[in-house]
Write a protein that binds this DNA or RNA. Sequence first.
DNA 1: CCGAAAATGAGACTCGATATCAATTTCATA
DNA 2: TATGAAATTGATATCGAGTCTCATTTTCGG
Lengths: 171, 171
Amino acid sequence: MATHQNAEVILFPKHARQPTQHKRWLATILQTFQEHLVRQGLNLTRQREEILRCLMSADRHLSVEEVYDALKKQDPTLGRATVFRTVKLLQECGLVAEVGALNGRSKFELKADRPHHDHMVCIECSRIIEFQSPMMERFQDEAIRRQGFVALWHRHEIFGRCKNCQRPRRS
Amino acid sequence: MATHQNAEVILFPKHARQPTQHKRWLATILQTFQEHLVRQGLNLTRQREEILRCLMSADRHLSVEEVYDALKKQDPTLGRATVFRTVKLLQECGLVAEVGALNGRSKFELKADRPHHDHMVCIECSRIIEFQSPMMERFQDEAIRRQGFVALWHRHEIFGRCKNCQRPRRS
DNA sequence: CCGAAAATGAGACTCGATATCAATTTCATA
DNA sequence: TATGAAATTGATATCGAGTCTCATTTTCGG
Ligand SMILES: [Zn+2]
Ligand SMILES: [Zn+2]
Ligand SMILES: [Zn+2]
Ligand SMILES: [Zn+2]
């Protein structure tokens, strides 16, 4: 467990942050969002802040519906449309990224200052494993350059069975 | 143009096949499909053959709607549902693969005996560039092994601007 | 031919996501 | 603080890709 060589990237490792550090990190991200909004003549509203906080405090990838359900409890007036709109804003300013899921329901993760990584998706338990492979990215960049392509983003998802879901299948 | 070192993978290079070769290739794929169907107690119908032929003769990635529109002309009774059902069958037997597109409309390509490749998608003209990177695949395999994951398939798509769409953007 | 099983196509339906719009909130300005 | 234009919200309607239903038609072995 101590060999972090092959360690799975942990989503939002709150436990690895001092409370004060975490608070500062949170404030920084909120500010990033606000700056993006102000740059477009928009406001950081209560709802927008709630949604960003929800994504920041999650320890896994969430769908819009999950964010909506979670916040609806403490703010019954919240509307679905606002969550969709806000997540789109967060994507535009680079704070949030879409992680396509199996069923047509997209999930989202906070990018913020986290390093780039790709995903393995378990088709049994829907678990999402994040991983990094600098070599893979390097050869990807090379392929992009060879094509004269200008890459803006990429989506690299591997589907299969995770370590826990490889028991003999039923039926 | 002769240096195939960096050559883009051409989709369905008919020009590179002798007519007789092409005919044989076509027959082989049809037979593969039929064998898969028979194995499940299903029949190779006129509609199913038409749809597979359409995908085989295309020189680019098609959506279900595009296949439907193309075939509707020569067979006005064809229904959308049949195209969806057939494409799903073709995916199940490994002849066709889904290539996720920008907008929620999926596109499909004939896998058949073509080597594995990944895709760059131009967000301006929707062109899809196929490329191969054995080194990338190699390090991907390594990452998969490290996680104890069992990979069934993967989707690696790079979004950006192709060589032809890098002019200064309007407005 | 016959008949069970498979296949089809029209249309209803699902559901994630978007568009509309009246009512509310925000914020710069006075 | 008051004002009003602009932004925001949420209820609702709408969209659209894909699926489901089911009555009718087709297939194919016997
Ligand atoms: Zn990557
Ligand atoms: Zn799993
Ligand atoms: Zn690949
Ligand atoms: Zn292009």
